[in-house]
């Protein structure tokens, strides 16, 4: 996996998650990939090595677990694959 993304059911969830992650792990926000196209249009991109930390930050944030989902993305441009992370 080249990078991880978190998708959200709602835009407000996406905005709330950014507040949780800010200053803790480096991240960027990006439009939800067409390959995923689930949830609201905002997703959070993070480095693969930060997966566990991102997971635990969100788990401890009060954001309901059904509000967000993790994907691993490999490749770039038109050749990319996104797979749900368990």
């Amino acid at each position: 996996m080249d990078y991880g993304v978190i998708t959200f059911v709602s835009s407000s969830g996406a905005i709330q998650a950014q507040k949780v992650l800010k200053g803790q792990v480096p991240f960027q926000i990006m439009p939800v990939l067409r390959e995923i196209s689930k949830g609201c249009g905002i997703s959070v991109r993070f480095q693969p090595g930060d997966l566990e930390q991102v997971r635990s930050l969100l788990a401890g944030s009060g954001l309901p677990p059904e509000e967000y989902a993790f994907y691993g993305v490999t490749g770039n441009g038109s050749h990319l694959e996104a797979a749900p992370l368990p």
Binding site: S11, A14, I15, Q18, Q28, I29, M30, P31, G41, I42, N76, G77
Partner: peptide
């Protein structure tokens, strides 16, 4: 404003790609 900030960041992300 927050939504607008998110949209602006995603605009430049998409443009750069």
């Amino acid at each position: 404003r927050e939504l607008g900030t998110n949209l602006m960041r995603m605009f430049f992300y998409t443009l750069a790609q």
